[in-house]
């Protein structure tokens, strides 16, 4: 192939090489800073609150609480980024959390089913709810935003119905022990559950073909279809697994609080979205990613905790999460635009 050869040497000419060496170093430094900006800001936030309230904020209790008691949110947000990564929404995931944890509670408390078996059923129910979401979206060809908005309402209704609108107490103590009572390095076990799920997702997203296909579908469904990706199957799988994550979050919620609650789970929806979008502005910039998401969860939790310790009322939580969601989406738009500008300058 002579013509190709001659063009190949053309690409080896000096100009292209110089471009490579001068830009790549700058990029590497900028890239790293961009990637971990959230961790830096987090450290600053801790320093500020620490300076303002050294005796209450900078304590082992505060930190072990912040890390140890927020895995419900972290796991829910991790489930969420699975569907966000394929370019879909799941607004029913918090209601799924409620229903699956109630199913576990009813089985364990009312029907004396063993804890392990109740948990397995709960996860299966969560997965089934996710699969049902996917069926509605795929078969009826409805936008996932609308479909899961509707399903979320249906599920919270079911959540009230099956428990008569009350909390279930008397869950097996083993659950509470293994979620929140037992600690490793001063932090409840549930933190490590979230950490393990984060690492599993990180591995799947980065090192498996399925993880890549999730991203392919999310980046451009038509390109994925014409590249031979089974788009419907990927979307179906993403909703199903996200539903299972919702159920796991529900189990952790019940373990943390020792009860199930038909409404308390719903408040996690917005913070989970805030964490997912904020997480997408760091680590793998522009993509929903597990490490970014979990970092964002703890960043947000730190902010809420610190403000509470400054004596600001409970209402600040809602404001804080809402502002974070809007700012993180605005920030990712800005990053995308500044990247586009950089493209032009290197051309």
């Amino acid at each position: 192939m002579s013509a190709s050869d001659s063009l190949a040497t053309q690409s080896n000419n000096g100009e292209v090489k110089i471009k490579k060496s001068s830009t790549s170093k700058n990029y590497a430094r900028m890239d790293l800073l961009e990637r971990v900006w959230l961790l830096i800001v987090w450290a600053i936030v801790i320093a500020i609150f620490g300076g303002l309230r050294p005796h209450t904020f900078l304590t082992v209790t505060t930190f072990s609480g912040m890390f140890g008691l927020n895995s419900t949110l972290a796991i829910l947000a991790l489930g969420l980024i699975i569907v966000l990564r394929v370019g879909e929404f799941d607004l029913s995931i918090a209601a799924n959390l409620v229903v699956s944890s109630e199913v576990m509670g009813i089985l364990n408390v009312n029907h004396h089913v063993s804890l392990l078996f109740s948990m397995i059923i709960a996860v299966l129910v969560g997965g089934a709810i996710g699969a049902f979401n996917a069926l509605i979206i795929l078969k009826l060809r409805i936008d996932s935003f609308i479909a899961t908005l509707g399903m979320g309402s249906v599920l919270s209704g079911i959540g009230l119905w099956i428990t008569g609108g009350t909390s279930l107490t008397g869950l097996s103590q083993a659950l509470v022990n293994d979620v929140v009572i037992r600690r490793l390095f001063g932090i409840s076990y549930e933190f490590y559950y979230a950490l393990v799920l984060m690492m599993v997702l990180w591995y799947i997203f980065r090192y498996t073909a399925i993880g890549r296909r999730l991203l392919f579908v999310g980046k451009n469904r038509e390109v994925a279809r014409l590249s031979g990706v089974r788009v419907s199957r990927i979307r179906f799988g993403a909703f199903t697994v996200a539903g299972m994550f919702g159920a796991v979050a529900g189990i952790v919620y019940s373990g943390t609080s020792g009860t199930t609650n038909p409404s308390a789970g719903l408040v996690y929806l917005l913070p989970a979205y805030a964490a997912a979008f904020l997480g997408a502005t760091c680590i793998d910039i522009g993509d929903f990613n597990p490490i970014g998401t979990v970092s964002a969860v703890f960043f947000l939790v730190t902010g809420v905790q610190g403000l509470a310790m400054l004596g600001v009322g409970n209402f600040v939580q809602d404001i804080f999460y809402g502002v974070a969601l809007i700012l993180s989406v605005a920030g990712s738009q800005y990053l995308a635009r500044s990247k586009a500008r950089r493209v032009i300058s290197t051309e």
Partner: peptide
């Protein structure tokens, strides 16, 4: 591929 197809890109 960048080399073989003479794509003008650093890498």
């Amino acid at each position: 591929v960048v080399k073989e197809y003479a794509v003008k890109a650093p890498n």
